[in-house]
Design a binder for these strands. Sequence first.
DNA 1: CGCGTACTTAACCGATAAGTTATTTAACAT
DNA 2: ATGTTAAATAACTTATCGGTTAAGTACGCG
Lengths: 131, 131
Amino acid sequence: MPASPDHLSVTLNALADPTRRAILARLSLGETTVNDLAEPFDMSLPAVSKHLKVLEKAGLISRGREKQWRPCRLEPEPLKEVDMWLAKYRAMWEARLDRLEAYLTQLQAAADPPAPPVVTDKSDTQKDDRT
Amino acid sequence: MPASPDHLSVTLNALADPTRRAILARLSLGETTVNDLAEPFDMSLPAVSKHLKVLEKAGLISRGREKQWRPCRLEPEPLKEVDMWLAKYRAMWEARLDRLEAYLTQLQAAADPPAPPVVTDKSDTQKDDRT
DNA sequence: CGCGTACTTAACCGATAAGTTATTTAACAT
DNA sequence: ATGTTAAATAACTTATCGGTTAAGTACGCG
């Protein structure tokens, strides 16, 4: 027993493949069949079937039963989990962008000779965060 | 040549491992050394070094040089990419939650004929507004 | 210099992943 | 019954992953 990995890892792993993300993108337009999903890809049907199984195990899709077709449907729940994980870091890339913006503003000010010396407030652009 | 995979796949793959996510979480508290990063894990130093290389190739960390140490720093840019990809689906899970809420409300109303529906809103904890 | 510390690289190994072709199951149509 | 279409499963190949131990590199110091 390989000690079942956490759900988030399973989800991220499922998403870490362009084919599978393309499948999800296609499914975001609506339910469809396996053959229909497979059509745009340059690979065999069983290969697509395997990708679908990976997505299904991650809970990213579900499969119904209608006549001889097994329509796939997008299940966005796990994406929400990913988003919640990401949220913990969102402030960071935003902060970094803010710093970049401040830096650019400062450059702009420096390149503008007659203006008053806009105090280059370094305490606001350099936040060395060591606890 | 395995035809270099897209950056988003590389990033998601790097994130699809609990050890690597733990390393990022640690780095979100501040820069630190490899030995320090490795300390909490029950694996050899080279194993951690490999994980760091995966994270570095995804652009999720950068490494400096200070004396004999190679401090690692979190680089949140790629996380922003993930967020941007996720954004395309955000409306979906929110819509689905809305439907669930409506369904629950309806159940509540049906089960409770005379009283006003005392909505037990468990799903009101998300206030997510990025573009 | 030589030695220790910090870390990386090399070589290897078992497990898993991603693809293939061939076979099988399931549901319908004739 | 037989055949057809839709899809899954089996069996196999090859490559990558995640870990190991052992050796190598880079730096600081006495």
